[in-house]
């Protein structure tokens, strides 16, 4: 199982615009957004702006990099289909 990332601008209503659509094959599973300078020490981290299906819910972590974000997403998706 692998993920595919596509750059996208995200209308978060804040300075956080740079995003990635996270696709598994041709299905959207999540949207990641890079946190802007307005987030101080968290600037540059990748935030799980939206999760679809099994990634939906109140748990919205942020990650140091895109690799870490993808690992987390894959683990979550794997966990449901061991």
């Amino acid at each position: 199982m692998s993920l595919h990332l596509e750059p996208i601008r995200v209308a978060t209503g804040s300075g956080d615009e740079e995003g990635r659509l996270v696709l598994m094959q041709d299905r959207l599973v999540a949207v990641l957004v890079r946190l802007s300078e307005q987030h101080g020490p968290d600037a540059g981290r990748w935030f799980l702006e939206a999760g679809l299906g099994p990634l939906a819910g109140p748990d919205q972590p942020s990650f140091a990099g895109l690799d870490e974000a993808q690992d987390w997403i894959l683990r979550r998706l794997d966990g449901l289909h061991p």
Partner: peptide, 10 residues
């Protein structure tokens, strides 16, 4: 999320 709180406060 902490991110949303920060966005709203700003």
């Amino acid at each position: 999320s902490n991110v949303h709180v920060n966005r709203v406060l700003q």
